[in-house]
Design a protein around this nucleic acid. Structure first.
Lengths: 189, 189
DNA sequence: ACGAATCCAAGACACACTGTCTCGTATTCA
DNA sequence: TGAATACGAGACAGTGTGTCTTGGATTCGT
């Protein structure tokens, strides 16, 4: 196996990396995505601008790295309970994620930016946090173990699409009642 | 009734208005939303910058005015045929709209921008082209006339959400087979 | 200890867009 | 003819972009 052939020269500063990530997260929450700038991130992090550009090529890239781990964590659901309970739990977690967490705010901003920038779209496809979480839940649903549903590519969209679309267009999530009803309908497919 | 109490002074130039609208549409297609600028639009339209800022406050506002009418037109579906045929026709038109028309490109860009700018989000809510078209189709579905489905606010999202989400995340629409299957499932709710 | 390689913070630099303002001109009504 | 407003053109200060330079720090191999 190839060990760690440590490259020549001074190694990358983990402190600077974390400072940039945290600065991006803070600025997103405090000022919003539109007001975020590479210059602002560097200054907030107490880091040279070249250091930022050396490791990331856009604020979207920084934000994705800053929020992907949190997003994954917040979209995990216990595999206890019935299929319906698990789907309800997942959609509830997704609603909370999208409307009330920093990582969810980042995800919405990134999905928005993906409509303007093909590289961001590709980046988001590579790190498909939402899709992975959804497939994890779907893959272990009690009733679906024996007769796995054919996934024509619309399975995940039909699970999360309605909720995501509603948040994207209305800016807020539906209540627990609507979420439960939506989970119900999804399982009747 | 209040007639047209024509305001004082030189009237607004319809030519300049249309030139700006067309310039925005052209630039969106040629260079993409991110590369569009208010300055670029004014120059392309052969119009002074003050003239642009006098009537619109952002490129999103221009783009919405430039594309809303086209969007409405492209999302109209005949009310012939069964409920399933109409839903399939609507989702097919929506897929075509989102992935292959200028107005659809504009809608995606605007929905993206709405995630960065609250004013754009509000603007898009006021001119809810997609929602209106969806409700028009749903409201006249043969089988639904007698027992109207209770709309808890998730009706339209459940119809268009899966398709929109898939286009937003994957950049392309599903094929006719998947669309038909999705329409089927929606009607079983 | 020394040099090579790479990283670091700081900031200069040319370029582009923003949004406002000014200029001179055009159009409409009273 | 005068008041009011729109028009095209462009000046202007402010700000972010992405690259480059400077002086210094850190790690390795010799």
């Amino acid at each position: 196996m190839s060990e760690s052939p440590r490259p020549l020269g001074r190694p990358r500063s983990e402190g600077a990396r974390l400072a940039v990530l945290h600065a991006a997260d803070d600025l997103l929450v405090e000022q919003g995505y539109a007001a975020m700038t590479m210059k602002g991130i560097a200054e907030r992090a107490g880091v040279g601008r070249q250091t930022v550009y050396r490791w990331w090529s856009s604020k979207a890239e920084i934000l994705l790295e800053a929020s992907a781990a949190d997003a994954r964590r917040e979209l995990v659901v216990d595999d206890d309970g019935s299929a319906e309970e698990q789907v309800v739990a997942f959609l509830t977690a997704l609603a909370e994620f999208l409307t009330a967490t920093d990582a969810g705010l980042a995800y919405r901003a990134l999905l928005g930016e993906a409509q303007h920038d093909r590289r961001v779209a590709e980046l988001l496809r590579e790190t498909d946090v939402l899709g992975e979480s959804a497939r994890t839940v779907l893959g272990r649903l009690p009733a679906w173990g024996e007769s796995p549903v054919a996934d024509d590519g619309m399975l995940v969209p039909e699970l999360v699409g309605p909720l995501v679309f509603r948040v994207l267009t209305e800016g807020r999530a539906p209540g627990a009642t609507e979420i439960t009803a939506a989970a119900h309908r999804f399982l009747r497919r």
